[in-house]
Design a protein around this nucleic acid. Structure first.
Lengths: 404, 404
DNA sequence: TAACTTATGTTAATTCTCGACATAAGTCGT
DNA sequence: ACGACTTATGTCGAGAATTAACATAAGTTA
């Protein structure tokens, strides 16, 4: 029965985490509105537990230099699995969210869960061993004094996750995963708490925390093999009643469009703008492409069919985003996903749709930008979610389930 | 410079407010997880300030009966103005949210702000005088000890409110209001703090607080002269970056539909399902109707054109709601507005659209129901928002602005 | 090197919070 | 009607949490 963190300690960790630079005692105290003396005990315990570490003296401004503290990066290792429609990435991050090592598997999600998760678990096990069990910060034997697991797995899946059960539900993109016990499978191979979430939620968290920290209402759209969305409201991912919030891919495109979607409906955004649909449509027109990377390359090369289809796709996405913008009035919309590799016209076309179909007030201060976090954005977001959990600030407890 | 409420006092008020029955000291202490003794001081101050009042002894269960406390209904009066597309209601509520008196003005919003607000302010002034300045609970002279205004005005307007300026913005339904200084006008007539919000936000708050208190993600649609929406996430209205969140009326209907909308676009939901559009369409077909009440009556009477148009309208709304349901995965959707008077088929047709176009996971546990709070729901919601403000738990400080 | 500036550790005072006790005010059984 | 019992209330002293103030440490600057 490990002692849990006090509220004050959670607060200290939050402050440190959201600061770009290490902080002195005085700075932490000021941020929390408490007297400096009040921090002493909590700070000492945190240091003893290894969660935070001294970070060298700051430069003097004319007086005694302050000792500064920062999150101890080596206090934990977070293994992250980012399953995408056409590729899967794994990585291990430290407690500051820095990725220490990553790996890529180029296989579509529908090769099935065993192949993908088997590979991922193997990679993670190796990485976690190589990178060492997290510095247990303690000959003192108090390394779990704060009651924290020091290794943690986060997985993002490209489909709706019912977090009341932790299962993938009627996954249009992942029929071979239907009913598969992801939690059980991973638990068998890696003994660590596991958090399951939607892949776009991970991206959304990364964007909010790392690129747009002041955003209050953020919408993130991922244009990959499928089309997904994620919402971050006041710093928390909004997952909805059953965890399926953010699904923008299977909303109806504005123009009646007969394209059949894998979800069983017709005219879904994804049936027009999803990577799989683009590949399929190109195929129909006799253009060779096996995945979305090919599509993006074709667009960059100026292949007329690809250019036209992707242009149309972006406009459809723009209309859908416009609906979402009207409904939510976000301050920030971020576009991510591999289709961005097709070039800047994607964003331009989406913007066009948004500004055309939304009311002026909703777009007046709207920031609509592509992600700048690169292809590892999903892993970075997974690290953020894992840190949330370790710091006791996770918002949806159902996501995590420690097997005892 | 009045002393503000302590955090503990705010907590006590919250507990009392959300309890259906008056509570004893022990019950309050249990709800707050503090010792009974700890409450004593805060409780006394609250009683002295008049915000709470003893509520008679509870029935004994074999021992000494407990003294119980409840919000002192007479500690404040909240004047509420609910401006709708075709009528305006005003009312005065007490601090428990009970409406003490209401009045109705049957005039469309576009007769202009002076006419409507002039009438409303006149009514409110009379009511507030008649119903007495709130019981000032104090020969003691400490009636403002807690630093609370005891009279407050809340107004809900049927258009997007830019709460960074407090103005009605490019109101499709209210061109005569464009640029009108609502705050200034009311401030001139009634000397009290003023909260301006969207009318559907008020309805949404009422529904969440009074009818669906366990809902975490709620969407409310108002089918009136216009079509509006409101969101309540975790008990707080989501207003978005500029206050225009919830706008579902000016999203594009799924089927390409050329109907021109007052907002300048074509094919908006409101251009098909808005009361004004229904009236217009009926007129085109030679059926007499001047407002949405007429339309609803025609449907009840079985007039074929009206039945058909309203049926189509409900389906369009259903499709839009389906999009919103996919995006947000709410646990509850409430339909309100005067069009409901047309009969149960409205809800049935909306449900049909939602279940047809949403993914199964999003609708698995979805509650989709009409409002049961009656035509005064907007006033009731305004009272809730006002109480939020008086109790110090208002979530969007920009809404309120005390003129000094 | 002295004067100055800023950070840190310590401590005594203050405030908060709690459990315990004595008392108040009912019901229940005879 | 009365005593035993049950539950609520007020109060007080112990203990914990928090703070401001002071003494000291560790730099910079003239």
């Amino acid at each position: 029965m490990p002692a849990p963190l006090t509220q004050r300690q959670v607060d200290i960790l939050e402050v440190l985490r959201h600061s770009a630079t290490p902080l002195s005692r005085s700075e932490i105290a000021a941020a929390l509105n408490v007297a400096r003396a009040t921090l002493a005990e909590g700070l000492q315990e945190l240091e003893a537990s290894g969660l935070i570490a001294p970070s060298g003296p700051s430069v003097s401004t004319g007086g005694r230099p302050a000792h500064t503290f920062d999150i101890n990066a080596d206090a934990a290792r977070i293994g992250i699995i980012d399953v995408g429609g056409s590729r899967t990435r794994v990585g291990v991050s430290d407690l500051r969210g820095e990725l220490l090592q990553t790996a890529l598997l180029d296989a579509p999600v529908d090769v099935g869960p065993e192949r993908i998760l088997g590979w991922a678990c193997g990679q993670l096990t190796t990485m976690l061993t190589t990178l060492g069990p997290a510095d247990t910060a303690a000959d003192t034997g108090t390394n779990t004094a704060a009651g924290h697991q020091r290794t943690l797995i986060v997985i993002g899946l490209p489909g709706p996750i019912d977090f009341t059960t932790g299962e993938v539900v009627s996954p249009p993109l992942m029929s071979s995963w239907q009913g598969f016990d992801v939690r059980g499978y991973i638990a068998q191979q890696i003994d660590a708490p596991l958090i399951i979430d939607n892949d776009v939620n991970l991206i959304a968290l990364a964007e909010q925390r790392l690129s747009h920290p002041t955003s209050k209402v953020m919408l993130v759209i991922k244009l990959g093999t499928g089309v997904g969305g994620g919402l971050v409201i006041n710093g928390h991912a909004l997952r909805g009643a059953r965890g399926s919030a953010g699904d923008i891919g299977h909303t109806q495109a504005t123009r009646a469009h007969g394209a059949p979607c894998r979800c069983g409906h017709t005219g879904c955004v994804e049936a027009i703008a999803g990577g799989w649909a683009l590949v399929q449509d190109l195929d129909t027109r006799g253009v060779q492409a096996t995945n979305i990377t090919d599509v993006a390359r074709l667009v960059r090369d100026g292949e007329p069919n690809a250019v036209g289809l992707v242009r149309a796709a972006a406009k459809v996405v723009g209309q859908s985003v416009a609906q979402a913008v009207s409904l939510l009035n976000p301050d920030t919309v971020v576009i991510a996903g591999e289709l961005l590799a097709a070039g800047d016209s994607i964003i331009a076309n989406i913007r066009e749709g948004v500004y055309q179909y939304s009311l002026p007030l909703a777009t007046r201060d709207l920031t609509l930008v592509p992600t700048t976090l690169g292809p590892l954005v999903g892993l970075k977001g997974g690290a953020q979610l894992g840190i949330d959990y370790l710091f006791g600030t996770i918002d949806i407890p159902q996501l995590a389930h420690e097997h005892e």
